[in-house]
Design a protein around this nucleic acid. Structure first.
Lengths: 224, 224, 224, 224
DNA sequence: CATGAATGAGTCTTCATTCAT
DNA sequence: AATGAATGAAGACTCATTCAT
């Protein structure tokens, strides 16, 4: 025990690692606030530092350079999003309708469908054309989600005796619809709320799967 | 000699105005090429000048400052878009189904639905959160288009005896769907072509308006 | 003629090029002053700008970046040096002894052998180990001078019936001796003047070529 | 437990001092490696720490600041050099010729005349113009060596009946010659080896002291 | 003793903007 | 009408130094 007292005068390794993780999150969150407030172009290491209440150097210390930091921010955003829909999916049970409902509801979950998040999404997507890193991160996470939607659609079609070939197109359509609603909500801030977005999506899903129309209306429009 | 010195440089007023318009367009198009190639953040007055084959000063000379130029570029992009769908609408005849078909087809018209245009749209929308000017321009043009879609929907619903109250939600959904398909096409470049986008939209429209399912399938999936 | 009045409203091309050359020299000379005053490590674009009485941006405008500027400074220094010894060589006439005398005298010419120049030489040579650019520039110019010395030695040896094989070693030795005297003059500033350096070199040359001892003594120690 | 906590960390004073000396040398040698690899300008406390395999803070802990560390490195370099020539001198015996030969040989001793050492020398000399500390250290050690060379020359001249007044000039010339050969070896790395350098020096010494020509040739060119 | 997180002044570089020509 | 030289205010990034542990 005396030995350990001597050999570990510094902070325990674990505590240090935790502290680093905390700092990284602190900086990432400050960056998000900055992007929301100043846009991606208007976000500098200075605005990030100021927002984090830290000195100019820390961001570089923890992320090596601005590009890495921004990439990490996008990843962080996707992680939150993925966590949300994956949890919803896990809690939805086995019925394909319920899974689809869960995925759509997750898309308009307040934790995900809020003004700040939307700014982040479109800010990064806007630069994805010129920044391979952003495009790559987006592609990876988007693919995972597409698989989930596509799976639910496949099962749903199987249940009602329709050809599985439609699944991909339907999944793409559903994904596109919710992304488009996000864009509306983002561009004309405040004019579309969660309820309206869910109602519109419900209408299209009900039309696309008339056999489950009732389920979609009930599952998406009702509730909270 | 003195006479010629005075009279020659003073070009007729009209010719001068035309020249100015030509230069402005030249610079706007150079800017678009630059945004496509370097992103909005990577577009500087220098990249614009280089792309236009003109000197550093011209952009400022004709647009006073960078922000105005970029605003003008967005406006230009919207003008081309608006021109496309308005012409399509005008040629569509009076039937609401045909008008809706025309509007959707216009959205995936090669002049509008190409990789470069998509980069422009999402680049500007990405910064719209932090730049009121972009948001304002977008809002103005988007509203005009929404009115057109909404009108077609209203008439269509009236024709099949469904409540007009649905029109706005349907219009929003259709708009969102096509925007979402644009986003797919933009982010995963090359994986979605005009045909597929039209087919997906047709499927949803057919489902939403079963009475005109045939029309939408025929009008959107067939043809070129 | 009226046409030319219209087509060339800007400054004539030639005048502009001259102006650019003037600015470049102005900045190079400011850089030299800065290196003399602050060392190479202490020379920043800010010290250069201040020394030149210009704004921070100009140096970059004319030299693209700091490294290029510093490379150009070294080249400039070598150009002056080369010009000096080449002119001396040209004026020396055909006698090998005279050519060797001229080359040595040029090395201690006040235009070349002054405190400021020495600082520049050793500052750049000091970094040559880590900067291939400097090493490359030095190598190129040093080679040219070595050829000249070597040629004179070869002819001199031929004149007195000694083997030509000695030439390279003698040339290297002479070059090394003058460089070493430069180092002395540089490190212990003020303790060695032109006269002393010439006298020491004369002594060694006289010893190395006893047949021309008188010539070297007379040619190097006398005069101004 | 309390007892061991207190007694164990308190190492004996002597052991502590030895450890400190070891650490200092470790850091100095790391600095030398860094200067060789990155140049003086490219050497930071970070490169030094990395090279030493120690944490960022140690260098400051042991040397208070970077300047002091670098000064210590130069001193260390001079110490090795001085040790080499002083030992050679001590082993040379009393004959002036032998002392001079020993001094020259020491200058091209593999321990001293190697690529890395040359980088160090010229790196520091390059900054000596702007850093009084380096100039001062150099001056001190150079003076000691000059005294040694000068002494040997004086005795040598006395032995052959030539005026002692020549000694200083000859000593300066010899010193300059070897320094100049070092510069050649440094700038055009790999093109001059120990043998060639010794041969060139031998030739000049033989010429300068014809009475001892044989001795110099034998003493410098033969051997290993 | 030793670590390495944190700071902030300073560096190079970029770039919108001005302006003389 | 057009050029492009010149400016200077940021921007990202570096690094010597400090300091709590």
């Amino acid at each position: 025990m005396a030995a350990s007292d001597i050999s570990v005068p510094t902070r325990p390794r674990k505590e240090r690692a935790e502290n680093a993780a905390k700092r990284r999150r602190q900086i990432i969150e400050a960056t998000i606030r900055s992007v929301v407030g100043n846009g991606l172009a208007g976000t500098t290491l200075a605005t990030v530092s100021a927002e984090a209440g830290l000195s100019q150097g820390v961001a570089v210390f923890y992320f090596h350079n601005k590009q890495t930091l921004l990439g990490e921010v996008l990843r962080h955003q996707y992680e939150i999003y993925q966590e949300t829909w994956q949890r919803a999916l896990a809690q939805a049970g086995g019925e394909p309708v319920d899974r689809l409902i869960a995925l759509v509801r997750a898309d308009f979950d307040p934790r995900v469908f809020d003004a700040q998040s939307l700014v982040i999404w479109y800010a990064f997507w806007g630069e994805a054309g010129a920044r391979p890193l952003y495009a790559q991160i987006s592609g990876k996470y988007d693919a995972a989600r597409f698989v989930a939607i596509c799976g639910a659609c496949t099962d749903l079609l199987a249940g009602i005796g329709r050809p599985a070939a439609e699944a991909a197109a339907l999944a793409t359509g559903i994904d596109a619809l919710t992304d488009g609603l996000w864009l509306r909500a983002y561009l004309s801030a405040g004019t579309m709320d969660r309820q309206e977005a869910l109602a519109i999506t419900a209408r299209f899903l009900a039309a696309a799967f008339p056999e489950h129309a009732e389920d979609f209306i009930a599952g998406l429009c009702g509730g909270d």
